[in-house]
């Protein structure tokens, strides 16, 4: 296996991986491919959840790239951003492990694809503002000087794995309507095998809003384009259920962590700004119709006191 192949097989975000996929294509997708992709996806999710000791491996052929592509299609169809996030994190952990084995030349060759301004600088690495802020790095704490941020190898790998996780779990570019029927059919069983956000799903709140199915669903995380409205809905529910601002902030942070990470970052500060606003405007009511319109729910909850009242 030459260097270009090794980079392609091991780093899904690399130019070499894209070239490999576009040259090979996914071919004829069989059930066995989808089963292999499901195994692969669940293995990554388990790795991300740390339910088992982290079990890394190095890819020896291009199969993994196919499984990643199929996993993303299946995840997109399953509508479970929590699982998509874990998948991304698992894949990122794997890439971080593989990067830790690389020599300087390969390490720089791979990471300069994520960070075009990256330069090795002695035992450190230097990168520009645009690259540094492209992940979830907080510029204000960065050792910034003259537009360059100097960081060590370990921090760079951590940064890169966060970015890789975002890219892997960003399913916004997948056109669900265009997916092959076989994937759509397989996705139903696949979805059942995926984990839901356990802590939030099990948690019982005192009020009547946060315990509703719609809120549980939103709290488990939503996809890009819905995250802001989701934060508004949670903020209103928290306020109506009488949660203190501190309790509500903690819940909101969990929500942000559960949401899909994508190329368009959704930051805690954005969600907490919704919370601030709602707590300053306690008269705002929760609108189930809005939740439906925004695609946060696909139907009204059974026995919801809100919709019941309206329909009576």
């Amino acid at each position: 296996m030459d260097l270009q192949q090794r980079i392609a097989y091991n780093y899904f975000f690399s130019r070499q991986a894209r070239q490999h996929l576009s040259a090979q294509g996914l071919g004829q997708i069989a059930n066995s491919d989808l089963e292999a992709a499901q195994d692969f996806c669940l293995r990554l999710i388990r790795n991300a959840q740390a339910k088992v000791p982290f079990q890394p491996w190095v890819a020896q052929d291009g199969d993994e790239l196919k499984w990643i592509a199929l996993s993303r299609m299946l995840l997109s169809q399953s509508g479970n951003p929590f699982a998509a996030r874990l998948f991304g994190e698992g894949l990122a952990k794997l890439c971080a492990y593989r990067l830790s084995l690389e020599d300087l030349q390969v390490f720089t060759a791979v990471l300069s694809q994520l960070y075009p301004t990256l330069k090795a600088d002695g035992d450190k690495y230097c990168l520009g503002i645009a690259d540094y802020t492209s992940g979830q790095n907080e510029l204000v704490y960065a050792p910034l000087d003259g537009g360059k941020i100097s960081i060590d190898r370990e921090s760079l790998v951590e940064m890169a794995s966060r970015l890789a996780a975002s890219r892997a779990s960003d399913l916004s570019g997948i056109d669900k309507a265009a997916l092959p029927p076989l994937i759509t059919e397989f996705a139903a069983d696949f979805a059942a095998a995926l984990p839901s956000s356990p802590a939030l799903m099990a948690r019982q709140f005192e009020g009547k809003f946060l315990n509703q199915g719609c809120m549980k669903k939103i709290l488990a995380g939503v996809s890009e384009g819905k995250r802001f409205y989701g934060s508004m809905a949670i903020a209103i529910a928290c306020q109506k259920d009488g949660l203190s601002k501190e309790e509500a902030s903690a819940l909101m942070r969990q929500y942000v962590a559960n949401c899909q990470r994508s190329s368009h970052e959704f930051r805690e500060s954005e969600a907490l700004a919704s919370l601030d606003w709602v707590y300053k405007h306690p008269g705002i009511n929760l609108s189930c119709r809005k939740l439906l319109q925004q695609g946060l729910i696909d139907r009204y909850c059974d026995g919801c006191p809100q919709t019941k009242r309206k329909t009576e």
Binding site: I129, A130, T133, S134, E138, L139, V140, L144, S263, H264, E265, R267
Partner: peptide
């Protein structure tokens, strides 16, 4: 800098 996202620009203001 022209391609910076809104979130990235926000980071610059915060800084």
């Amino acid at each position: 800098l022209m391609q910076l996202s809104s979130t990235q620009r926000d980071q610059l203001v915060e800084y």
